[in-house]
Simulated scan of single mutants.
Amino acid sequence: MADYIGDLRKLIGTKPIIMCGANVILLNDQDQILLHHRIDRDWWGLPGGAMELGESLEQTASREVLEEVGLVCGELKLFNVYSGENLYYKYPDGNEVYNVTITYLCNDYSGEIVVDPSEGRDARFFPLDMIPSNLSSTVKEIVEEFRIKYYDLKAQRVI
């Protein structure tokens, strides 16, 4: 698949861009969420990443989960859409982005966790009351909103 963001960066350098992507809150049978420990910063985050040309958001979410943590997603359920100042990010290489992030919920997945060493150090499930404090700045709002809404979502059988 083409590297849309990489090709775009060759043209515009590190200037801010709007980047559309997706991430997934994977929930296990013990009501724990999967977090991915990234290598570019000492931060935990949700598996996810940038959309490539021609992909649907669901395809982006599923591809990124498979690439980053080795799990195959079944049904994805829309959780929320995030954008704005809180999703600004400056990468260690100087590239700046304003993310538009679509977050999905998934408790229908298969496989074993296998972390891609080019992107992560670790991936594991955490209880909702034991989320690491060093969350990625771009997912803090998402994880906090999920923690607040978790019991309502469960009562509605969304998850």
Rank of each mutant, 00 (worst) to 15 (best):
I5H: 10
G6N: 09
G6E: 10
K10G: 02
T14K: 15
T14F: 07
P16E: 12
P16C: 03
I17Q: 14
I17T: 12
I18W: 02
C20H: 13
G21L: 07
G21P: 07
V24D: 03
I25E: 07
L27C: 08
D29W: 08
D29L: 14
D29C: 13
I33Y: 02
L35W: 06
D40A: 06
W43S: 14
L46K: 01
A50Y: 08
A50N: 11
G54I: 08
S56W: 05
A61E: 04
L66K: 15
E67I: 11
E67M: 11
E68P: 00
E68L: 00
V69W: 07
C73V: 04
G74P: 05
L76E: 04
L78K: 10
V81Q: 10
V81M: 06
E85F: 10
E85A: 11
N86H: 08
Y88Q: 07
Y88V: 01
Y88N: 10
Y91P: 00
D93R: 12
N95K: 14
N95C: 13
E96L: 11
E96N: 04
Y98K: 09
V100H: 11
T101S: 11
T101D: 11
I102V: 15
T103H: 02
T103N: 02
L105W: 07
C106Y: 09
N107G: 01
Y109Q: 02
E112Y: 10
I113E: 02
V115D: 10
R121Q: 14
D122G: 13
D122V: 11
R124P: 01
F125H: 01
F126L: 08
P127E: 12
P127G: 12
P132S: 04
S133T: 13
S137F: 11
V139D: 13
I142A: 04
R147K: 15
I148T: 13
Y151G: 00
L153N: 05
I159A: 02
